[in-house]
Amino acid sequence: MHNAGKKTLRQIGLQLFLLLVTATVLFPIMWIFSLALDSRNIDKPLELTIIPPGASLQAFRKVMVEPFTLLCKDPGNPSTCMTFVRLLGNSMLVAMGTALLAVMLGASAAYAFSRFKFIGRQAGMLAFIVLLMLPSTATLAPLYVLLSQIKIAGEPLRATLIGLMIAYGSGALPFAIWNLKGYFDTVPKELEEAALIDGCNVTQAFFRVILPLSVPSLAVTVLFSFMTGWTEFVMAWTFLEDPSRFTLAMALRSMQGQYSTPWSEFAAMSILMSIPIVVIFFSLQRYMVSGLTVGGVKG
């Protein structure tokens, strides 16, 4: 009896604590929802309500259906303006390209760092960490020059989505390699040795033994690099010229005007942009705990 009472008390305490955490987590999210539903397009909700007076989904409709008049090839002709669907397509392309590049090249390099003892190994690992620590504030200018030199079909690589993918992918690689190496280290070597004895070569062992066992950390790496490509806009603004290649993150940024911002639409756009990431997060959640190794410790 005494024990059961103690248990109930403990449960109540835990629930109170976790509900408090939930409230703080949800507060800003509720707030931005309220902003998006507000038909008055004001910059801040005038009172604390989840459903503001005259609530409507107008802002969502406007963002998703109407063209973005600030992002047009020919400002006089609305049919040349970007729409939500086209922006979404570009964002998906860039984010998936970034993720694919980071996970493929990252896994290959991480395998070498995890499984071979070779000349230059320590220096190589150290180089990745150094690159993680060096801020890239002023590197945009040389990267611009560099990517402008490479031409694809007469066009500078810099102004294409492929150029962006390459730039983001390279930026996502240090974390990808570090995280994947940490996970590969935890895969027992005996499994691979058995495969080698069975006649696999090193590459086959990598594809048939290591990779299938490393799904959690591959998933986490894909998620993080996808997020990089999905949300970046500073480089995209500097590099891209043709509005038909613009991304959602750029469109969101363009809505934030110097003097006026359509806040309801901005909030609606923010929510729409967050949804894919949140969905991917939730679907990969079971991998999250084990797949994030941050530096070679078994989770």
């Binding site: 590049l101 090249l105 690159l131 060096l134 890239s136 590197t139 945009l140 040389p142 990267l143 560099l146 390459i166 730039a167 992918g169 390279s170 930026g171 690689l173 240090p174």
Partner: peptide, 10 residues
């Protein structure tokens, strides 16, 4: 990739 895209600008 990193030598060209990250190291060179650095």
């Amino acid at each position: 990739l990193m030598t060209i895209i990250t190291l060179f600008p650095q």
